[in-house]
Every structure is written in structure tokens, then in C-alpha cells.
Design a protein around this nucleic acid. Structure first.
Lengths: 169, 169
DNA sequence: GCAATATACTAGGACATCCAAGGGTTTGGA
DNA sequence: TCCAAACCCTTGGATGTCCTAGTATATTGC
């Protein structure tokens, strides 16, 4: 996107907030903005690694999810719930994965409304390769210290639970 | 997107990673995935608050940035750099803000290549109102504890610096 | 048993993001 | 001085996300 800025734009924003009398929410604003930007950076790294495999993160996530399912198949609505994205996003991803012969749609044996997404042999192979690449290039080089990783998992886990993502734990 | 899941899908993914022999990167994977999901939740909250103002987060960010500029105007490339998004994204946002009469494009006085984005009176008013709403509804109710906010700012700040977002500090 | 309600997926549309490419403007080195 | 390289913005295209509706299938309740 360009050259590094001389100063942290988010820290600047936080100062601006304080300067305008919003000091009480300046810090959370900065933290939230930092999360948004960090996500953007991470997503870009991930997409870069996946590009050679012809995958995007959305499609990879679906592939990875299927590869962990016992039978290598899941109903679309199940996938939507587990990936926590809108059903139409899953439809979109499946359309493209199916076109690439990485998954197949098949009717649910007992429920006529439901469509199963099944991993093909190619899909399973590609998922493995892509996972290895992501592990090596992104997750293995996250840049976060071990303590910070633990902290992030804990804090964001609480946040997600409070936001209604899940109940238990 | 729906009802809460019985279990944390990211914790499940982490267990799957460990089960498949990728224990060394399972934790960072979980932390990164949690950041992605948290961003999604926060963005949804923000967009919900901004919708009544006819704004999206991208447009709000631009408006807020302009409202902090001395003259209420910035060159497009400056805005692109500070918001850390692609120039075309700024073009897109300005197109829509201009259509809503919240900003105006004007030629740069000395550099014929550059276009200035100027806040209109309406734009400045709306920015103030939208900021008040976000402060009250999102940043003021982030759900993060003060210590966690500080930790996030610090850890993500280091991450962003290492990623090349900025140099100093 | 049948109508009303709920659920599952898809089609179409609005937005945002990025990349690649094109046209205009400046700058800088030969 | 002058042309090539650098820079700025926009257009067009690919993706992804969500929402709203519409169609088809199940389930419920009377």
C-alpha cells in the first residue's frame, strides 16, 4: 500500500480523540481500530500465500473445515454456522470451489432442503498443501510472542463469547 | 448471524490443528483467526450504528480524518496513506461522499496531479454526530477491560510497526 | 390431513477491497 | 531543453460480505 508512515496513524487518532474531549473512549477506539488494521494486514499475508494455490481465505476456510469433518462433508447451513458467515457467502464460496472441482454438492439423504458439500480428492490434497503453506508462512511467523498469543486467545475468546458467538467455556 | 454455537469454533480448530501434528502453530493460528472474527463482529456493530447516518465505516473514517485536518481538506493520496487503504478505495469513498454532499473535490493549488478532498459544512456536522454515536454505542461499550485495551494497543502496535505500517515509536 | 410456520438454499443488489491499466502532470537527468 | 521515469487519480474487473426476496421442503398445530 506504500511506504511506512513516519508516525503511527492510530496513535495519532487516539491523541485527536483525547484532544477533542473524548478521552474516556480514546483507548478503546484505538484498540478497536488496531484490530481492524491488524486483520487487514493478516488477511493480505494469508491471501498472498494462498494465491499460488488458486484459493482465497474464504475458500480455504471452507476447505479446511471440510477436511476436519469425519466424512469430508457438511451441510451448507452447518458450514455457515461454523465459519460464522452469512449463508450466501457459503453459496458463493461453494460455487467457486465446485467450479474448481475441489468440492461437490450433493443432496442430503433425508432432508430435501439441505445440500451437502463434499470434499473431492483434489480438494483434500489442496487443503493439506495450503495448510502446510499457511502454517509455515503465516501462523509460524505471526510475529506475536507466545505470551501475547495466549493473551489474545483469552481476551478475544471472552469478547466473542460475550458477543454471542458461542455459549460454553 | 444466528444462534450461538454450543462450543467455540476457534478453540475447536485449534484442537484440530494439534490433533494433526501442527501443535507448534496451533496457538498463533487460533489467535489470528480470533482477530479475524473479532474484526467482523466489531465492523458489524460499527456499521449498525453508522447506518442511520447513511455512512459506512470506510466513509466515516474518511470524514473523521478530514475533520481533524487543520483546513478540513486533504489530498487523496494523503488520505489513502493515513487510512492505509488502496487509492482506489479512497476514490470510491469520495465518489459516494461527494454525491451525498459531505465532501467536495477541488484541484490542488500547485500540483496539477493532486486532488484535494474538502469537508463541507454538512460533512463536518455529520462527522461530529456519527463520532458521538460511535463513542457512545461502540467504543464506550467495547467489552474489553482497561488492561486488555492497553495490552491490545501495545501488542497490535508492535505488530503493525513490524509489518511496516510506520517507523517511529 | 392440511394449512401455517419454520428452515435451507439461491438470485440479485449494494458496498468495500484489491489489482492492472490508462491518461494527465511533474520531476530530473542527459 | 526535453524526454523518460515517477507520481496521482480514475476506470474496469474480480472477490468477498451482507441484506432482501423468492422457491422448495419440513415441521407443527389444529
Amino acid at each position: 500500500m506504500g511506504t511506512p508512515l513516519p508516525r503511527d496513524p492510530i496513535a495519532d487518532a487516539q491523541r485527536n480523540w483525547e484532544r477533542h474531549g473524548w478521552g474516556d473512549v480514546a483507548a478503546p477506539m484505538a484498540a478497536i481500530t488496531a484490530i481492524m488494521r491488524t486483520q487487514q494486514i493478516l488477511l493480505a499475508r494469508i491471501e498472498t500465500v494462498l494465491k499460488p494455490f488458486g484459493l482465497t481465505f474464504a475458500r480455504y476456510e471452507l476447505l479446511a473445515l471440510l477436511s476436519f469433518a469425519r466424512s469430508g462433508a457438511l451441510p451448507m447451513n452447518k458450514a455457515s454456522a461454523l465459519l460464522q458467515v452469512h449463508p450466501t457467502s457459503v453459496t458463493n464460496a461453494v460455487d467457486r470451489l465446485e467450479k474448481a472441482a475441489l468440492v461437490v454438492r450433493s443432496p442430503h439423504p433425508t432432508d430435501g432442503r439441505t445440500t451437502l458439500i463434499e470434499l473431492t480428492a483434489d480438494g483434500r490434497t489442496l487443503a493439506k498443501k495450503a495448510t502446510a503453506a499457511l502454517n509455515a508462512e503465516v501462523f509460524g511467523k505471526s510475529g506475536f510472542g507466545d505470551d501475547d498469543v495466549d493473551h489474545l486467545i483469552r481476551v478475544l475468546g471472552t469478547f466473542r463469547r460475550d458477543a454471542g458467538d458461542f455459549t460454553e467455556e
